[in-house]
Amino acid sequence: MTERRPDKPLLPTLSICGSIDDAELERLHAEAFGLEPASPPPAWVERLRGHSLFWVTARLETELVGFVNVLGDGGLHAILMDTCVSPRRQGLGTGTRLVDTAAQEARRRGCRWLHVDYDPPLAAFYENGCGMSPTAAALLDLRPANRHVQA
């Protein structure tokens, strides 16, 4: 059920491991990251079931408007991956609620640390909006050297 506040827009319903299909997640992912959706869509659901600790969905009625995948190391660490919110919902608290819900669920499952990698334009969102602390991290591009595409 979607909650309505008189002075605020509708709040999406968040679900841990909410039902999802490949096409709708590909549409949201493409929309959020400014890409063209792949056709046919990648096997998102298969990957989620095989590699995720859990995921969080955000829906307005039946429309998927937000998503975050949480990976785990089997111990104390959880990692946010593919956090995405429909551009129509950005700036309305949906992303912050997704990350907060993911943090609460990771804590409930025994994790102590929640990690995320992000581009500099998202620093304010993760650090100020979600309360995460910046850390030093490194990234190695594993694609063939002749392909120069930014990560």
Rank of each mutant, 00 (worst) to 15 (best):
I20H: 02
E31H: 12
E26F: 02
G18R: 09
E31N: 05
S15V: 06
D21V: 08
E31D: 11
A32D: 05
C17A: 12
P6W: 12
D21T: 01
D21L: 10
L10S: 10
L28D: 04
A23L: 02
R27I: 00
E24D: 08
L28I: 00
D7T: 06
P9T: 01
L25D: 06
P6E: 07
K8W: 11
R27T: 04
F33Q: 07
P9W: 05
D22A: 07
K8N: 09
H29W: 14
D21W: 00
L11S: 15
L25W: 05
I20K: 03
C17R: 14
I20D: 01
E31W: 02
E3G: 02
I16E: 07
T13M: 12
E26H: 03
P12N: 04
E3L: 10
R5Q: 13
H29L: 12
G18E: 02
D7F: 11
D7A: 11
A32I: 05
E24S: 09
A23K: 02
P6L: 14
R4M: 10
D22E: 01
E24I: 03
I16A: 07
E24R: 06
S15R: 15
I20Y: 00
E31P: 11
L11H: 11
R27N: 09
I20A: 05
A30D: 00
P12Q: 05
L28H: 04
P12E: 00
D22M: 03
D21A: 06
P12M: 08
L11M: 09
T13I: 03
C17S: 12
E3I: 08
K8D: 05
E3K: 12
F33S: 07
G18N: 08
A32S: 15
L11D: 04
P9S: 04
S19N: 15
A30S: 13
F33R: 13
E26S: 04
K8I: 00
A32G: 15
G18L: 09
S15Y: 03
P9F: 04
D22T: 01
G18D: 08
A30I: 00
L11I: 05
A30Y: 03
E31F: 02
A30E: 01
S15Q: 15
R5Y: 11
I16N: 09
T13E: 13
R27M: 08
A30M: 03
H29C: 15
P12I: 04
L10C: 11
H29E: 07
I20C: 06
K8G: 09
E31L: 12
E26N: 08
I20W: 02
D7G: 08
D21P: 13
P12S: 10
L14C: 10
G18T: 04
L28F: 03
P9D: 03
L28T: 02
D22K: 07
H29T: 14
R5N: 12
C17T: 01
L14W: 08
D21I: 05
K8F: 09
E24W: 06
H29A: 15
R5S: 14
L25E: 04
A32N: 11
S15G: 12
K8E: 14
P9H: 07
L10P: 14
G18C: 13
K8Y: 05
S19Q: 14
L11F: 01
E26A: 01
E26W: 01
L11G: 06
R4Y: 12
P6A: 15
L11A: 15
C17F: 00
H29R: 15
L25V: 01
S19T: 09
R4S: 13
D7E: 11
E24Y: 02
L11E: 12
P6S: 14
L25K: 11
G18A: 07
I20T: 00
R4T: 13
P6N: 13
